[in-house]
């Protein structure tokens, strides 16, 4: 059966060239001095020092984390009840609802984000409705509100689907058992349903936080000039100022932050599952 196995070899070469090599290049550029020929590459930490010594970049990092955390929190607060309601519907309606949530994710993110520019504009729909009541026009576009709204809009379907998956897989007899044993609705929810659905919330957090922290076109389209996030800084380094070394270093810092946050969320997952075993 050796000739079947060999069918995987071309892809291994391909993935070394187009997947692994680019990652190696990022690391190499982040740690070496710019403008050198390949023969005398010099190791340096200048790129990292520059990032952490400059207050501007540090603020960008703080802002990116803040926006990503806020987005994730809003996604949980809106997504959890929504997923919970879907999971309690008739099986047929559940299929329809999942379909309704999924369809927009198939449509180009940029198209859907751009539409919010028209909706939130000073002469847009929301402001003309507010105008009828005598309020406004309110500046909605190019604010933190618009930015978080755009992020929540783009990423909340992933949160809903993950939570729904964990809720719909839950054995209903647990809930019956809880009420048989005298728990009221709130207690049942807090001590049975919620702990069992935490894995879904955790994978939802991963799917929302990661794209939110690295996004660069949502801040550009909805956040305006004051909401420069880490993704925008990376974009500038590569497409405007051409400083690959610094750009690579920032991407590495971002990657490390993402890895650390993923690690923390996974740890959070462990705690409730121990409690879950007691039920």
């Amino acid at each position: 059966m050796k000739n079947f196995k060999s069918m995987a070899y071309p892809y291994i070469l391909w993935s070394i060239a187009l997947i692994a090599l680019p990652m190696v290049l990022i690391v190499v550029y982040a740690f070496t001095k710019e403008g050198n020929s390949v023969i005398n590459i010099q190791f340096t930490l200048d790129n990292f020092a520059r990032f952490f010594s400059d207050r501007v970049f540090f603020n960008v990092l703080k802002r990116s984390l803040y926006i990503a955390v806020m987005t994730t929190v809003v996604c949980i607060l809106l997504g959890y009840p929504f997923a919970y309601i879907i999971a309690r519907m008739k099986p047929r309606s559940q299929v329809v609802m999942v379909f309704i949530v999924t369809i927009p994710t198939w449509i180009n993110m940029l198209v859907r984000t751009y539409a919010w520019r028209g909706i939130l504009d000073k002469s847009g729909i929301i402001n003309s409705i507010l105008g009828l009541v005598g309020i406004g026009p309110v500046k909605l576009l190019e604010t933190g509100f618009a930015l978080i709204l755009g992020m929540v809009y783009n990423f909340i379907p992933f949160m809903i689907l993950q939570i729904y998956n964990s809720l719909s897989k839950m054995d209903y007899s647990y809930i019956e058992a809880a009420s048989d044993l005298g728990a009221d609705r709130l207690q049942t929810f807090l001590r049975v349903v919620l702990p069992l659905s935490i894995p879904g919330v955790i994978s939802g957090i991963t799917l929302v936080f990661l794209p939110a922290v690295s996004s660069f076109f949502i801040p550009k389209l909805l956040g305006g000039g004051q909401y420069v996030l880490i993704g925008n800084v990376i974009e500038n380094q590569f497409l405007t100022s051409g400083d690959w070394g610094f750009g690579s270093a920032i991407s590495l810092i971002m990657a490390i932050i993402i890895i650390i946050s993923m690690h923390i969320t996974k740890k959070l997952d462990k705690a409730p599952s121990v409690e879950g075993g007691d039920i």
Partner: peptide
């Protein structure tokens, strides 16, 4: 993140 793949 897509942007990392992209710059690579």
């Amino acid at each position: 993140p897509e942007i990392v793949t992209a710059i690579g």
